[in-house]
Design a protein around this nucleic acid. Structure first.
Lengths: 140, 140
DNA sequence: TTGCGTGCAAAGGTTTTGCATGGCA
DNA sequence: TGCCATGCAAAACCTTTGCACGCAA
């Protein structure tokens, strides 16, 4: 018989990283901040390991990766899986950094437009609309 | 009397870089592509010079700088002031990595929708639609 | 002549890779 | 026991900085 081999192992480091990202409740962190957090907590996790977990978690859709405007380094943010992110928009405020989930039928229009007019199949899981949210609009 | 000193000099390199960006008609290039272009054309322009001109042109608003998600390097694009008011979409293919630049009136609909329905001011310069382009759609 | 522009080399900072060892199942 | 995961060090990358020389005005 074929021996079933696991896709991945459960490790202390992987759990720590995911727990930490969850504990931040949606705010974003850089790789540097993550590494320093574990240094302060005296949990030894190499930065290579952090990078590799972040890449995996991003591919799984459990976290999101952002490259904010002027900075050259990436930011990562936990995404609550309780909500199905395929069915709605993500609006990211460039000022306060909050990620807004929006359920709206307009999604279908956008997907349809790009498919029929531009032969492009949008991946809404990955796509993020950047802009300014209500709270951060100047003069309001 | 105060001697008038020029804000900047006109140089061969600066002209070459601006001409090249203009010649691309709005599509995006990385610093690397610019440097290689001049290597191929046997115009010697150091990469430091390229960086410095791009910085200056960006500050002047003659070109735009983008830092796309997932990529670590910046892209630059010439902005024609005659057609400047017209923003555009970015479609990034997740498979082949190509960045497609689309001018389309549908932009106004999207901007209007988010503004009126969700109180969110979209920044189309930063927003990138991820997905699969025509060439990369499986089974076509 | 003045002082900005240029380009080489080196530094600075982030992310990836090679490889031997560690640890999960 | 079989592999994946880990982490150190080094490499790979992109961008910035220092400095002496070049060149526009």
């Amino acid at each position: 018989m074929v021996h079933k081999r696991p896709a991945s192992y459960h490790t202390r480091q992987g759990q720590c990283i995911l727990d930490y990202l969850k504990s931040l409740g949606g705010s974003h962190v850089t790789v540097n901040q993550i590494v320093r957090h574990f240094e302060d907590a005296e949990e030894v996790i190499g930065q290579t390991t952090v990078y590799r977990h972040l890449e995996k978690l991003t591919a799984q859709g459990k976290i999101r990766k952002y490259v904010l405007n002027a900075d050259r380094n990436a930011c990562y943010q936990y995404v609550d899986n309780a909500v199905n992110c395929r069915d709605h928009f993500h609006l990211k405020c460039e000022i306060c950094g909050s990620l807004i989930h929006v359920d709206c039928d307009f999604l279908d229009e956008i997907e349809g437009h790009f498919r029929s007019e531009h032969d492009f199949q949008i991946n809404m899981l990955k796509t993020v609309f950047y802009g300014t949210c209500k709270q951060c609009v100047p003069g309001s």
